Computed example of a mutant assay.
Amino acid sequence: MTDRLVGADRVIAVLTELAEHPAGVTLDELAGTLQSPKPTVHRALATLRRAGLADTIGRGVYILGDEYLRLAFRNLDGRPEIARMQPLLEDLASRFGETAHYAVLSGSDIVYRAKMDPPQGAVRLTSVIGGRNPAYRTAVGKVLVSSRVRHVDDLTAVFGAFPLEQKTPHTLTTADALLGELEATRARGFGIDDEENEVGIACVAVPVVLDGSAVPTGAVSVSAVRFRCPLERLVDAVPEIRQAITDRLGPAALR
């Protein structure tokens, strides 16, 4: 961020930064992060507060406003894809006793559009709706990227320079290793995350098509704490996951 932010850009920058601080953030902290004068940031906050998009929870401590949350959740709940996906995720979470996600590809990241935790008795994962993770180290990301990438040049166009960040000891960071995994993903028709994004968490993901596209529009995943549900068990469950997708979304959702 720079102090050249003006007008709507400045307001949006402040709004975006507020979203990074659910427990609240001070004017001084906002001004420092955005590298903008305090009076400038304060004017942007005043604009957001008038619209209900920002609020205060104490003297000089700002958070996102309830109106922002209302608009966001109303929009999310009203999206046709969420209405279609939520019953499927509820089915998978109940059936396997693990967390189910629906995610889409956004540049080099995946974004979680919907999530369902198991009804009871399981550790809850840290993923959140709207949260992002780098695609190269997630099962949903690999299954979505695999349909679009065939060569090392394609990988570089998506992820930039290699090696990539080593998030865990299992993360694939070289172009050759990732390209090989994407080829394997394409061949078997589902993605695997073997503790590559978070130690102790395993995941499988199946691509889905919601709009008749030639490439998947998103992916459905089942994630689990590995000591409770090993990756091998999740892999064995892929045919059942595919069947659940067909039952809920119809055969055209699978390719």
Rank of each mutant, 00 (worst) to 15 (best):
L92V: 12
D66I: 01
R50I: 10
P37H: 15
Y102R: 02
A31G: 06
Y68S: 06
L71E: 08
T99R: 05
A23W: 06
R59F: 07
H101S: 01
D109M: 12
L88H: 01
M85E: 00
T26P: 07
Y102W: 11
D66N: 08
L92A: 08
T47K: 12
E20Q: 11
E90A: 12
F73N: 06
G78K: 15
L53G: 06
L88V: 13
L27Y: 04
H101D: 12
G24F: 09
F96D: 04
D91P: 00
A54W: 06
P22L: 00
D28Q: 12
N75H: 14
T16G: 00
L69D: 02
K38T: 08
E90H: 08
E81I: 07
V61R: 07
I110M: 14
R49N: 05
A23F: 13
D91R: 15
R95M: 11
Y102G: 04
L69S: 01
A72V: 13
R79Q: 14
L76E: 04
D66T: 04
Y102K: 03
G32Q: 06
R84E: 13
E67G: 01
G24K: 12
L88D: 00
R74C: 00
G78W: 15
A103D: 13
D77P: 09
L27M: 03
L69T: 10
E81V: 02
A46S: 06
G60T: 10
A19E: 14
T47F: 03
R84Q: 14
T40Q: 15
E81Y: 02
A46M: 02
L48S: 09
E20H: 14
P22C: 00
A93S: 11
L71A: 09
T99F: 02
A103E: 13
R79M: 14
E81C: 01
V104C: 02
L48F: 07
E98D: 15
P37S: 15
A23L: 11
L45V: 11
R74Y: 01
R84D: 09
L69N: 04
D28H: 12
